[in-house]
Computed example of a mutant assay.
Amino acid sequence: MKRAGVIAKAVAAGFMAVALSSAIAQGTKPAASAQPSYAQRYASLCASCHGANGRSDMAGTPVLAGQHSFYAITQLFLFREGRRDNPAMTAVAKTMTDADLRGFSDYIATLPAVPAPPATTPPDAARMTRGQSLAQEHRCVICHGADLSGGQQVPRIGQQHEDYLQLTLHGFRTGKRPGYTQAMGEAVSRIAPEDLDTLAYYVARFPGAPAKPPPK
């Protein structure tokens, strides 16, 4: 039964990859000239929650500034297909065509990384040291990079909101949050919940991010 479940997950991931590849390919078609630019559409549809520059202070809302196009289109696709559990985002994504997925994700990729506002109190040195150790031990830097800026389908996580990081890490651990692959679920499955919170604390306050803006 366990082997069958693994095979089923692999098949499902394969189908998702094929469908996503189709969305990416179809999204390269030029939009009609009468359509507003995706900068305008982002401003009217996304900025109220995510911020005009891709960083807002709204609780539970991820920073989009500095994210990569491939990662953004993957998440929009998962929302559109009902694979991620967020009714508000699913409602928005369900209105998007494949070209829209590409247009919005390409625009998001032009938003430069924005540093977190200065902290009112210094970070807890012990938690930062422990978080750095966890990031090294569990190989976070292998995929997300030494500066935690990610790349391609791997998100920039440095200075992401702590509450969103906590929610995401615990979601991967419990299986509630799907990924493009099984990599994140496997990576965090062996980490204690309290260590996930420490990891989120460290990543949210990572001193080396943001790095350079993503390529346009």
Rank of each mutant, 00 (worst) to 15 (best):
A32F: 06
S33E: 14
S33M: 05
A34N: 08
A34Y: 04
A34P: 05
Q35W: 02
Q35Y: 00
Q35K: 11
Q35D: 14
P36K: 13
P36L: 13
P36Q: 14
P36V: 13
P36M: 12
S37R: 03
Y38T: 11
Y38E: 05
A39S: 10
A39C: 06
A39N: 05
Q40I: 00
Q40P: 00
Q40G: 01
Q40M: 08
Q40Y: 05
Q40V: 03
R41M: 14
R41S: 06
R41W: 02
Y42D: 11
Y42W: 12
Y42G: 09
A43P: 03
A43K: 10
A43T: 08
S44G: 08
S44R: 12
S44H: 07
S44Q: 15
L45V: 15
L45Q: 15
C46S: 07
C46W: 00
C46Y: 00
C46K: 08
A47Q: 08
A47G: 08
A47Y: 01
A47E: 11
A47C: 07
A47T: 07
C49K: 08
C49P: 06
C49Y: 09
C49T: 02
C49E: 05
H50I: 10
H50N: 11
H50V: 09
H50W: 06
G51C: 02
G51K: 02
A52I: 05
A52N: 07
G54N: 05
R55Q: 05
R55N: 05
R55W: 01
R55S: 05
R55D: 02
S56F: 04
S56E: 04
S56V: 04
S56P: 06
S56Q: 06
D57S: 15
D57F: 10
D57W: 10
M58D: 08
M58V: 15
M58Q: 14
M58K: 15
M58L: 15
A59L: 12
A59H: 07
A59S: 11
A59T: 10
A59E: 14
G60I: 13
G60L: 14
G60T: 10
G60E: 14
T61E: 04
T61P: 06
P62E: 09
P62Q: 12
P62A: 11
P62C: 10
V63Q: 10
V63Y: 00
V63D: 05
L64A: 09
L64H: 08
L64F: 07
A65K: 02
A65L: 01
A65Y: 03
G66A: 12
Q67N: 14
Q67E: 15
Q67I: 13
H68V: 09
S69P: 04
S69N: 07
F70P: 00
F70R: 14
A72C: 07
A72N: 02
A72D: 07
A72M: 04
A72W: 04
A72L: 00
I73C: 02
T74H: 03
T74D: 10
T74N: 10
Q75C: 05
Q75G: 01
L76W: 01
L76A: 13
L76F: 02
F77N: 07
F77E: 04
F77Y: 08
L78Y: 03
L78R: 04
L78K: 01
L78G: 02
F79C: 01
F79Y: 11
E81D: 14
E81L: 11
E81V: 10
G82Q: 12
G82K: 09
